[in-house]
Amino acid sequence: MTEANDWMAEELAEILDEDLELELEDATISREVARLYRERHPDALDSRTYLQALIHLQAELIKLQDWVVHSGERIVVLFEGRDSAGKGGVIKRITQRLNPRVVRTVALPAPSDREKTQWYFQRYIPHLPAAGEIVLFDRSWYNRAGVERVMGFASEDQVEEFFRSVPEFERMLVRSGIKVIKYWFSITDEEQQMRFMMRIHDPFKQWKLSPMDLQSRVRWEDYTKAKEDMFARTNIPEAPWYIVEGNDKKKARLNCIAHFLSLNPCHPVPHDEITLPERVFNPDYERATLPRELYVPEKY
């Protein structure tokens, strides 16, 4: 029993190490920027409270995953919001302990020349879930209502056709048995500016800053108008929008995951008892000694 307790303690420590590693991603910034961030978020959750809540929610996500597989449910979750609003962070925490064959993330690049000639929704359709799957879209077909519209990558006629089509497209998905959940991560102008400054000073996150991100600062008001128009024309009963207050990253992650779980009540799934079979031992077998150069050097 003592050995089992020691093993469980080691496993828990490893889990906490994983979470700590993720949280350190948010901490590799200059001291001055970190100080300003703390001043801006005096009521931020402490790490212990946050990690305890996160692990509890992730345990519930595992139960949901088992139920989705057992029931054959199909779920699509769209994550939208301004650049640096926290979409990637919550997706990472949702998928962290789940089976990637059941719960997968889709983050499509800009459309190719060929895709630009297709029906607008066509390139998203191959990524929709089959029975027993959850698909998380890190940005989605709503690119047309946001960045494509604001940056002039789509004409007004194309945008208008999108707004005519998307409610019926999503109703078709729902009628086919796919649950569509749409999240918008909302942050203030000042918060986005702070996060962009953090990315500029953080070598681990500079890759996240693209020329398009910088233009989103210049066109903040244009994005706001586009967002308001999008909500007005695409918030349908079959697939409503849910707004996540995102200024506090940790609270936003916990609130979003808790809300997602509340939308998908699941029932306990029966599991067959698992027993570890005995290893087959062949007294005539000798394990070969492999050449040393095949091994990765032990630097640590």
Rank of each mutant, 00 (worst) to 15 (best):
S216R: 03
R74T: 02
S262M: 11
I274L: 13
E293K: 12
G152Y: 00
L98I: 01
V90A: 04
I75A: 03
I75F: 04
M197K: 11
M197I: 14
Q122G: 06
A258L: 05
I75Q: 03
D138T: 04
D213P: 08
L214E: 14
V103H: 00
W141S: 04
V102M: 05
R217Y: 08
F121Q: 07
L263S: 05
T188Y: 02
L78I: 14
A226Y: 00
E133H: 13
L45R: 02
Q96E: 10
P297G: 10
P297C: 12
D248A: 06
S210L: 06
D157H: 05
G89D: 05
V103C: 08
G152C: 02
I134M: 11
I181Q: 02
F196P: 01
E133V: 06
H41Y: 08
M194Q: 10
D17L: 07
M8N: 09
I134W: 05
M8W: 11
A131Q: 14
D46E: 08
R31F: 13
D272V: 10
D229M: 12
S71G: 04
I200K: 07
G146W: 00
F196G: 03
M1C: 09
L54C: 03
F153V: 06
C266W: 09
T95Q: 10
E60K: 13
Q206A: 14
K249T: 05
I181L: 06
D66F: 03
D113K: 15
Q122N: 11
R164W: 04
Y124V: 03
V77Q: 04
D222V: 00
L57P: 00
V90E: 00
V33D: 09
V68W: 02
H267N: 14
L214W: 14
E115N: 03
W67H: 12
T224H: 08
E170K: 00
R40V: 03
E11D: 14
L51H: 07
S165D: 14
L128H: 07
Q52N: 08
F281S: 07
E133T: 05
H41Q: 10
P297R: 14
A85Q: 00
S84T: 15
P268S: 11
Q192S: 12
Q52Y: 06
G89K: 02
R195W: 01
E190Q: 13
L136F: 04
I200N: 05
V68P: 02
I236E: 13
A252K: 01
R175P: 08
D43A: 10
A4D: 08
R144H: 06
L45E: 05
Y37F: 10
